[in-house]
Amino acid sequence: MIDYAIKKSAQLFITVFGVVTLVFFTLRLIPGDAASAMAGDTISGEALDLMREQMGLNEPLMSQYFGYLRDLVMLDLGQTITTRLPIAEMIGNAIPVTLSIALLTILLTVVISIPLGTVAAYMAHKGRTRLDNLLTGFAMLVDLMPSFWTALVFLLLFSLTLGWFPASGMVTLDDPAMFLSRIALPVLVLSVTQIATMARITRTSVLEILSEDYVRTARAMGWSEFRVLFRHALKNAALPIATVIGLSFGNLLNGTVIVEFIFTIPGIGNLLINGINSRDYQLVQTLIVFYALLFVSINFITDLVYRALDPRVSF
């Protein structure tokens, strides 16, 4: 276990370092440079030079790179180029919003998808294939709905037609009721897809375990099917399912970008899209590194937790 954690941490470090380096140099590879890309046709000549100077673009590439690394380590994320706002503060404000959406989605997903998938697996195991096929087909369909489209359909139905949720309004944590009502629809949109995914995965894992020999042993000892399903099958399926929940975080991050954009919610996703549209490379670069870091760390933690919980992995 310790061996494994050491090895994995080393890998993680290399990956993160690679991400930072890749992002930095790729941005410098753009034809022209960040300043001229930003300036477009409006600024030229001396003004552009001044801008380059301010952005530190006139320094040698390697010293820019090391400077960037030093700033990252010191958590000095600098300012946005366009609005001159401190990036660290912007991200700090946006994170709670995005994480609230993500965590609520995971909660809703787990509560609904695991019982659903377990029941579906049970039906498949008993050979009730028609009902099972219908459910799995439906789950696949829902799973594949593009989230921006689902978001629009939900917006049309629940907000514009039925008026259950506000389509706009301030999003701040200071007003929890308003906050919840504003993020309810985004959470719902993301959950629909996640529930479909997780229910399918739960079904597959549980179904596989139901045909294991030890399930038959439990039945032979006189335990009811219901008890065997929830004591043995689900307990054994729990580890792979937990891992998938961790890994599905990436999809969730993809999804938050879209729903934040559609429902105009000030999370990191929206920050990113705005950054790209306003060609604010400093901001985009920082956000992309941030996303990668978040994603990789969650995968790392998931992996370690899995290994810590599985009695078969020795310490």
């Binding site: 020999d213 042993t217 032979a220 009811s224």
Partner: peptide, 27 residues
């Protein structure tokens, strides 16, 4: 099924072929 569950294990015990897979690995 219910009546049979009272017989399984209690009146008829079963030993299976593959000892490696016949016991629940996480219990």
């Amino acid at each position: 099924e219910r009546a049979l569950n009272a017989i399984r294990g209690r009146e008829v015990g079963t030993v299976f072929q593959d000892p490696m897979s016949s016991l629940d690995p996480v219990m």
